[in-house]
Amino acid sequence: MSSDTPILSIRDLTVDFAPKSGRLPAVSNVSFDVTAGEMMCVVGESGSGKSVTALAIMGLLAADTAISGNILFEGRDITRLSRREWQKIRGRQIGMIFQEPMTSLNPVFTIGRQLVETIRHHERVSVRAARDRAVELLDMVGIPSPRSRLDDYPHQMSGGMRQRVMIAIALICSPRLLIADEPTTALDVTIQGQLLDLLNDLRSETGTAIMLITHNMGVVAEVADRVTVMYSGCVAEQAEVMQIFDHPAHPYTSGLMNCTPKLTVTSAQLNTIPGSMPNPAAAPPGCLFAPRCELAIDACSEGRPAQVNLTGNHSSACIRAEMLLGESAE
């Protein structure tokens, strides 16, 4: 498969938890691609719909959630799959690492059991072979003396260790796509770095495409190939990582970059984007970011802005995108 064929293609994904309430959907009209072997970062503030998008891809949202749009995985629309067909994709072709390492492992089963059951669910191997495989995987994700760890329970491990176990579980079938939902947010900074390096190494070794969800532009700068910026359930901007840092075409993206803590800046100088995301029950009529935007003009509150294609695969949902690009080019 050539490197720019998308393995995951999302078109107009809308996820609404309360369709009749008139509230803003948690995710609306989101479209993006993940191509084979790339690291695609999804960024956005808390509540912007990143996790909901990921769960929709995994088919893990509650059955009564209203989902529309298409999710094409290797060309096949997986939104209409039966439960059985989903089970063949989950864990085998798409792996997922969750935001909450402390609670994502079953507290009453050993680490070994949780790995072995998954291995044996997907491959016909003996328990002994599965345990050997589990040791290999734990070793690969950097857990010291992995064999002795097999009989540990999750509570005997630190958050970082648990997240490594989660990564090991997600890697069992060498999935084509790995969704990592803020895998490091709950962990301290040194562990964050180690885990990101681990994910990056795994990607170059196995060729697994990674959709990395984060709200940290520093992480994006370090590992991303491409970036999708989400705001209030919508895509604000999409671009290659270099484009987004050099020529951001959405004021929200610039805002996110300004509030990323840099090591050279003291915490007192930390910037924030003033205001907060719109209340889903009373969303403004125009651009959802307009009330917080310094560059907003009258036209911004007239109708939701559409995605505008700028150069190559750079797109933005800001009506002033061209102007922003012109400015940064000068």
Binding site: R83, S104, N106, E117
Partner: peptide, 17 residues
């Protein structure tokens, strides 16, 4: 509704398990 149940589903395990 716990996270580890979501994990179990994400691993592709059957509903029965």
């Amino acid at each position: 509704s716990q996270d580890y149940i979501r994990t179990a589903r994400a691993k592709g395990l059957s509903e029965w398990v």
